[in-house]
Design a binder for these strands. Structure first.
Length: 576
DNA sequence: CCCATGACGAG
DNA sequence: AGCTCGTCATGGGT
């Protein structure tokens, strides 16, 4: 077999045509192996050599993870494309177009009639590139997987594009961390494949009991379900004159309902109604109805049936970065599960969770990326708002609101006066935010500390009123401000997460949930303490990469986490 | 059937 | 304070 002379970390491109073949390409050497026999060779290479696997997307990674192979190093062309170019789209056609300086707007779409019409109009099926220089959509959609030679070509293209991406990354000279970010973003995408395959331990009995507490027992017939609905509607409607019928699911009708009882509101959002619970006895039941309705429609029995497998794992689709600031995303409600349902996220028998969340991550990140020494000094406190408050000569709460307001572009409220002092005491950090705001308002794209492109996209304001145009620009400014901090925080979080992923294998531990500033790790009970220590060590390593210790043995920016060993996700820091 | 909007959960 | 995301609902369009 070939590739035996490869060095650790040497690029080996991999393409896998599901259930048929896998191609491995390194340098001039191309091998195609039958699937699943190819797994043995991939596994051997991973053990003996440890190459950097180059692939188009997480799809390839999933094939390995499903087979029990957990690679150490990879380069994900899609993930790096999103990093360098911003935005959501990162399919092969977009990657190809970008690296050949072609307009992504010209990427050919496969029109419906092509599905039925003559083959000859579509060009040579062995040639991935069309006359316009773009990847042919038919090739991208599946032709690449139809013969061994084409699978090999697909992997060869990946290897070639990897070289081009490396050049692009090197060209981003004002963001020297970009290369490191490309690696951690690739690893984060691989972690996403593992999160999809592994799933999150979910105790179905507990989950169904919690749901029942909101909406009653699981209805056995359609009539029973309808009766339950009617009963819950009646809890609200009984406060109206008899005969009044309003559909509580329609915000417009709820507005009419409230008008009937003398309450006039521009919208019926919960935070607005909560102020009006004393205005009429119908408001409190209405809010309770909304909470139950959310459980019923989004996190009820259907949700459990759809997303929890027979193995007691809750599964969704994961993405390593969204199209804005680059945070991880997940479907199946994994990122917005109501707190009441968290007891259902339970470690399996003989296992525990190690849970940790980063403390005050965004202001600490701001101190790091802006290089403000005074703000950095404040991060040495466990609660960095305390020293900031002393510096400003205000209450802690005021200081906190002011710092958050500066990062998020707050325009009103009590933070406003402290903002002026913030500008004076921390001019470098505040200047960093102001620059981001101004650039975004001017429609200039930004790059985070880790090198992610943040598109601000100047919208057409010609047929807008002056007021609308100004408020639009202000919103873009806030977006830019926020994205620079939130984006860098996301990069830092992913660095932490993928370090833990790498170290966790030794303990049979698995990262099972990533939640923006929080990690949940599932681990055999006897290794719980060890895993917790490892998680903290990974944070220190991530911190070292972002804020290296200086000549005097001094770490400029300190990062902190709250770590606990628990058996249910609900046992957070206060309880556990 | 697609799309915009409201509403709401999480961070 | 503000920003993201995904999800479900209605109600307007095609």
């Amino acid at each position: 077999m070939t590739h035996t002379d490869a060095e650790p970390g040497a690029p080996v491109a991999l393409a896998i045509a599901e259930n048929s073949a896998a191609a491995l390409v390194s340098g001039d050497d191309t091998v195609v192996l039958a699937w699943p026999d190819a797994l043995a060779e991939i596994d051997r290479l991973e053990r003996d050599v440890g190459p950097r696997w180059i692939w188009w997307s997480k799809d390839t990674a999933r094939h390995l993870v499903e087979a029990g192979i957990r690679p150490a190093r990879c380069w994900d062309l899609g993930a790096v494309h999103r990093l360098v170019n911003g935005g959501w789209r990162s399919g092969p056609a977009e990657i190809w177009a970008s690296l050949h300086d072609l307009d992504p707007g010209d990427i050919p779409q496969r029109s419906p009639e092509d599905l039925f019409s003559q083959l000859e109009a579509r060009g040579d099926p062995d040639d991935p590139v069309g006359a316009d220089g773009h990847l042919r959509p038919e090739w991208v959609d599946g032709e690449w997987a139809q013969t061994a030679a084409r699978v090999a070509r697909w992997a060869e293209l990946a290897l070639e594009l990897h070289r081009r991406q490396l050049d692009r990354v090197s060209a981003i000279v004002d963001r020297p961390a970009t290369r490191a970010t490309a690696l951690s973003e690739s690893a984060a995408e691989l972690l996403c494949a593992e999160l999809e395959v592994d799933g999150l331990p979910f105790d179905r009995m507990t989950g169904e009991t919690i749901v029942a507490g909101f909406v009653g027992p699981r209805p056995r017939t359609a009539d029973e379900a309808a009766a339950q609905l009617a009963r819950r509607d009646e809890e609200v409607l009984q406060h109206l004159p008899p005969g009044a019928t309003f559909d509580l699911r329609s915000p417009d009708q709820v507005k009419s309902l409230l008008r009937r009882v003398g309450i006039e509101v521009p919208d019926t959002r919960a935070w607005r109604l909560e102020k009006l619970v004393d205005a009429h006895p119908i408001v409190a039941p209405l809010l309770a109805w909304r909470r139950a309705e959310r459980i019923l429609t989004t996190f009820g029995y259907d949700w459990i049936d759809t997303h929890v497998g027979a193995d007691g794992r809750l599964r969704g689709a994961w993405s390593g970065s969204d199209g804005a600031a680059g945070r991880m995303t997940a479907t199946a409600g994994l990122h917005n599960m109501p707190a009441e349902l968290r007891p259902a996220i339970a470690a399996e028998p003989g296992h525990v969770f190690v849970r940790a969340d980063l403390g005050q991550i965004e202001p600490r990140i701001l101190a790091a990326v802006s290089g403000d020494p005074k703000l950095a000094a404040a991060t040495h406190d466990d609660d960095m708002y305390a020293p900031v408050a002393r510096q400003l000569g205000v209450e802690r709460e005021i200081a906190k609101v002011a710092v958050l307001g500066a990062m998020y572009g707050q325009t009103t409220g009590t933070g406003a006066q402290a903002l002026a002092r913030l500008e004076r005491e921390y001019p470098i950090a505040m200047g960093y935010l102001r620059d981001a705001d101004a650039a975004a308002q001017g429609g200039h794209d930004l790059r985070t500390y880790g090198g992610r492109l943040v598109r601000t996209g100047s919208t057409n304001t010609t047929d807008m009123s002056e007021r609308d145009a100004r408020s639009r620009a202000a919103a873009r400014g806030r977006y830019g401000r926020n994205a620079m901090v939130q984006g860098a925080a996301a990069e830092f979080f992913k660095t932490w997460a993928v370090l833990m992923r790498a170290r966790a294998n030794r303990l049979d531990a698995r990262v099972v949930l990533c939640l923006h500033d929080e990690l949940l790790v599932h681990v055999p009970a006897e290794a719980g303490r060890d895993a917790a220590a490892t998680l903290d060590a990974c944070l220190q390593e991530a911190a070292h990469r972002w804020a290296p210790i200086d000549r005097r043995g001094h770490r400029p920016v300190r990062f902190v986490s709250d770590t606990s060993v628990i058996s249910q996700w609900s046992q957070a820091k206060d309880a556990g």
